[in-house]
Amino acid sequence: MGNFFYSEFFKNMRIQDLATEWSDATRSELAEGFLQLLLKLMSLAFKLNIKGYKANIEHFTGRYVFRSKDNAITASASFENGRMKVYDHVIDRPDVTIIFRHDRALMDYLLSPRPDILGSVLRQDVEVRGNLNYLYKFAFMAKRLQLMATGAI
């Protein structure tokens, strides 16, 4: 894990723990728990407004559903009035739904330095239903979070 969270938010044990857990998940083969950790970390980063991160969701309204193909993992996120809410169930009226085979596939899709988007789609490891622009925005926010967490920005 890079220096940003450790340097500026060292005293915030919660974000440190989350960042470490997330980092571990992204390094592990299965990336187990990646999605939940990403959403928690994102939510916290908005609350703490790290490096002006909150500006990304001011005036933004969007509803996201993430679920694994076998429905073993379900999570949702909604953005409204500059706030992010995370749910452990499927919410209605999503702008976009991302269906993935497993955590690792979702992580590769969103965050890999060389994302295997073509491969993910071809193997149907990841399927997207709905407005792609919402996915692009989310992918940007996730990538920026990753870059912040690793001290790249």
Binding site: R114, N133, Y136, K137, A139, F140, K143, R144, I153
Partner: peptide
């Protein structure tokens, strides 16, 4: 044009 949104922070350094 919006397909580059996920890459805004990395497009300058992509391989």
């Amino acid at each position: 044009g919006m397909t580059i949104w996920p890459e805004l922070d990395t497009i300058s350094t992509r391989e």
